[in-house]
Amino acid sequence: MRFSYAMLPDYPLSESLASIKKADELGFYAVYAADETWHKDLWLLFAAAAGQTSRIRLGPSISGVVLREPTLIAQAAATLDELSNGRAEVAVSSGNFGLLAQYHIDWAKTKPLSRVKEAVHVIRTLLDDGVVTFDGEFFKYSGLFTFARPVQERLPVKMGAMRGPKSFEASAEFSDGCHHALSYTREAYEYMMKHCTIGAERAGKNVHDLDLGSWVVFSVAEDSAVAKDAARSMVGLYASSMPHEQLERNGVSPDEVAPIIEAIGAGDMAKGIELTSPDLAERLSIAGTPEEVTEKIKTNIEPTGINHMILAITDASLVKALMGREIAGVPNVDTQLQLVHDKVMPAFA
C-alpha cells in the first residue's frame, strides 16, 4: 500500500514547501494537489518543490481537461518531470463541476467521459512522441510539437473517477490508473474494482498493475474527538461534489446531505458544519486516532485491492481558511504526516 498526501495549496507557500519536504523525508509516495482556480497554482509550487526534494512524486490530482487544455497539461508535466528528474505524474478528469459553474459551463453538456478519454490520448501522445496530430470531437491538432520532454520513459497519466461504471472502466482501459475520490465503504471500492477489472481486461492489462487510489478526507490525532471534529468541518464541502450514486454507495442518502449543500452553497459555512452530524462525518471521512484510521482502511479499503491511499489531510489552518471555523488541538499537517509514518504505514508494509 502506497501513502500519498493530497494538499490544497491554500497555505502560505513556505508552509506548503515545508510539508512537501517533510513528506519526502518520511517516504510518502507522492504529493498531489488540485489544479483549480480556487487555489494557488500547483505547477509553480511543485516546480519549487522539485529542487528541494529527492524522492517524492509530484503532480495534479485532479487536473480538469475542460479548463486546462490537455496539451498544456502534457507540456507542464514534462517540464516538471525534467525539474524533478523523473518524478512527475498527472491524474485528469473533466473537473470540479462547482468551479465549472462559476465559468458558466454546464458540466453535463461537456460530454465529460468522452472528453477525458480523448484528452488522455492527447496527453499520452504528446508526452511519448513530442508531437501530436489528432482530429477528435473535442481536440484537434496538426503537427503540434513541444520541446518539453519527460525524463521518465513513461510518465504516468491516470484518470479520476467518481460516478458510474463507465468512468471506472475507462480509467483502467485507457490510462495508468484510477484515483477514486471520496469513498469510504467496502461496497464503494468493490464497485470500483469490479469495473476497473472489466476495463483492464478489455485492454489486456492486469488490474493490479495499475495505480488504484483512494482519495479521502483524512485527519489523525492522538485525541480521536479532535481529529473527527476537524474532518466533520470539511465533510459537507466535499460531499457537495459527490454524485448521488456515489453517496448511496457510501451509505448516505442524497436527501441527508441536501440541506448541508444548500447552506454551503448560500455561503453559510457555519450552518453547513452544524448540519453535518458526527455520524455523517464518520461515514464520509477517515478520522480519529492512528489505530482507528488504520482499522478503517484495513476493514473497508485494503481488502478490495486498492493499493494507494491518498490522504487529503485536514488541519485547523485548512478548516479556518475554507470554512471560517476555529478549532483547537488539531495537529498541523507536518505532525499528521509524522503520525501516519510512525503509526499507520507500518501496518501496511
Rank of each mutant, 00 (worst) to 15 (best):
N307L: 01
G324F: 01
E302T: 14
D334C: 14
G305E: 01
G305A: 03
I310S: 14
N332C: 10
L337E: 08
E326T: 15
M323G: 06
E326A: 12
E302C: 07
G305C: 03
H341V: 05
N332Q: 11
V319I: 11
M309I: 08
N307E: 02
N332Y: 02
S317M: 12
T335F: 03
D315Y: 02
V330L: 09
A316S: 15
V319W: 00
L322F: 11
V319N: 01
K320N: 14
D342W: 05
I301P: 06
L337M: 08
H341M: 06
K320W: 06
P303T: 02
T335Y: 04
G324W: 00
I327A: 07
N307H: 01
A328H: 15
D334G: 15
A316I: 03
A328R: 14
N300M: 01
V319C: 06
I313W: 02
S317Q: 13
T335N: 11
I301R: 04
Q338M: 12
K320L: 14
G305R: 00
M309W: 00
R325D: 09
I327R: 06
G329E: 07
P331L: 10
G305H: 00
T304C: 04
I327S: 09
A321D: 13
N332G: 14
E326R: 06
Q336E: 09
P303E: 01
L318M: 15
I306F: 02
Q338R: 10
D342Y: 03
R325L: 13
P331M: 08
A316K: 10
V333P: 10
M323E: 13
V333A: 10
P303M: 02
Q338L: 09
L322P: 11
A328W: 00
H308R: 12
D315R: 07
G305F: 01
T304S: 04
L318K: 14
L337R: 04
M323T: 09
T304Q: 02
S317K: 15
I327L: 15
V330K: 09
L311D: 05
D315F: 00
T314D: 06
N307S: 05
I301L: 03
R325N: 11
Q336H: 06
I301D: 02
I327V: 14
T335H: 10
T304W: 01
T304H: 02
G329S: 12
K320V: 08
I327H: 01
T304L: 05
V340K: 07
Q336P: 11
V319S: 08
D315T: 05
L311F: 02
V340H: 01
T335G: 07
E326I: 11
A312T: 11
H341P: 10
S317Y: 12
L337Y: 00
H308Y: 07
D342K: 08
I306P: 05
N300P: 02
M309S: 03
L311K: 03
M323F: 00
V330H: 05
I310Y: 00
E302W: 05
T335I: 11
D334S: 15
I310V: 13
N300W: 01
A312N: 15
D342T: 08
P331A: 06
L318H: 06
H308W: 05
A321Y: 12
M323S: 11
V319D: 02
Q338V: 09
T314F: 02
Q336G: 09
Q336N: 09
T335K: 13
D342Q: 10
N300S: 14
L311R: 05
A312C: 13
N300K: 04
G329H: 04
R325C: 13
G329M: 07
T304M: 03
A316L: 04
E302N: 08
G324V: 04
S317D: 15
P331K: 07
Q338S: 12
